[in-house]
Amino acid sequence: MGFSMEEKSIRVLRVIKTLFFLIAMLISFLFFSVPVLLVIADTLLPFSLLSASLSPSSLSFKTLSSHFNNYDFRYSLIDIPLISIIRSAVIICVYSLCDGPRLSRGPYLGITTICSVLSLIYVSLKAPYVFSVSSIDRGEYAKAMEIALFVCSWLLAIGHIIVAYRTSCRERRKLLVYKIDIEAVSTFKNGFPGYKKIPKQERIK
């Protein structure tokens, strides 16, 4: 038996409502998981770009040990992903240990800002040395990957500050709403200002 046009429209409407609900839930999940997702990106992207800049070689344990043994601030790039990992580890630890009040105006925003600004200063000081050497000794592809690595590190550091600030503002709004609700309930229980309860005997008279 086929469905009537009305039943089909009802089914389509239900499907649309279900999809809308799932999309809203996904957006809400991504919105509240932005600090975690940014930490994951800050951990993976710099290493991926570093591996691409080493083409045709790949980033392995042997090449990592070689980079550490031959480290030089002027041209080595291994410290850029390490800074991202350390920065992300500190930020995610502080974020996981903080509750609502601490996320609103506590250590999360301050520590995130300090870590991001320090990493920005370090990467900015390192960039002129690396680009002056790479412009002579490296090809165009490796140079492009190095530029992408530095830009990615800068953008992720700024992204941490923006996300921490927005998270702080969101938690402050939540605490404000919660405080208003508590004060409203307390006022309702204690009676409104200027309201005097009349004894039951006087009301009977």
Rank of each mutant, 00 (worst) to 15 (best):
Gly2Val: 11
Gly2Ile: 10
Ser4Glu: 13
Glu6Arg: 15
Glu6Asn: 07
Lys8Thr: 12
Ser9Pro: 01
Arg11Phe: 07
Leu13Trp: 11
Val15Leu: 15
Lys17Cys: 04
Leu30Tyr: 12
Phe32Ser: 14
Phe32Asn: 09
Val34Met: 14
Pro35Thr: 13
Pro35Ser: 11
Leu37Cys: 02
Ala41Pro: 00
Thr43Gly: 09
Pro46His: 06
Phe47Thr: 02
Leu49Thr: 04
Ala52Tyr: 00
Ala52Thr: 03
Ala52Val: 01
Ser53Asp: 01
Ser53Arg: 00
Pro56Phe: 04
Ser58Ala: 06
Leu59Trp: 13
Leu59Met: 13
Ser60Leu: 05
Phe61Glu: 02
Thr63Val: 05
Thr63Ala: 03
Ser65Ile: 05
His67Arg: 13
Phe68Thr: 03
Asn69Glu: 09
Asn70Trp: 05
Asn70Gln: 08
Tyr71Trp: 15
Asp72Pro: 11
Phe73Met: 11
Arg74Asn: 14
Tyr75Ser: 14
Tyr75Ile: 09
Tyr75Lys: 05
Asp79Lys: 08
Ile80Asn: 07
Pro81Arg: 15
Pro81Cys: 07
Leu82Pro: 03
Ile83Asn: 09
Ile85Lys: 03
Ile86Val: 15
Arg87Pro: 01
Ser88Val: 04
Ala89Met: 09
Val90Thr: 10
Ile91His: 12
Ile91Asn: 07
Ile92Phe: 08
Ser96Gln: 05
Cys98Leu: 01
Gly100Ser: 10
Gly100Ala: 07
Pro101Gly: 05
Arg102Tyr: 06
Arg102Cys: 02
Ser104Met: 04
Arg105Thr: 02
Gly106Glu: 04
Tyr108Gln: 02
Leu109Ala: 11
Thr112Val: 09
Thr113Val: 11
Ile114Tyr: 07
Val117Phe: 12
Leu118Arg: 00
Ser124Arg: 03
Ser124Tyr: 12
Leu125Ser: 07
Leu125Pro: 00
Lys126His: 06
Pro128Gly: 09
Tyr129Lys: 00
Tyr129Ser: 13
Phe131Trp: 07
Val133Glu: 06
Ser134Cys: 03
Ser135Pro: 02
Ser135His: 08
Ile136Val: 15
Asp137Gln: 12
Ala142Leu: 00
Ala142Thr: 10
Glu146Pro: 00
Val151Asn: 02
Ser153Glu: 10
Leu155Ile: 13
Ala157Asp: 14
Ala157Asn: 15
Ala157Ile: 06
Ala157Glu: 06
Gly159Phe: 10
His160Lys: 06
Ile162Tyr: 10
Val163Tyr: 03
Thr167Gln: 13
Val177Tyr: 10
Tyr178Phe: 08
Ser186His: 08
Thr187Tyr: 12
Phe188His: 11
Lys189Leu: 14
Gly191Ile: 12
Gly194Arg: 02
Gly194Thr: 05
Gln201Lys: 11
Arg203Ala: 14
Arg203Asn: 09
Ile204Thr: 10
Lys205Trp: 04
Lys205Asn: 08
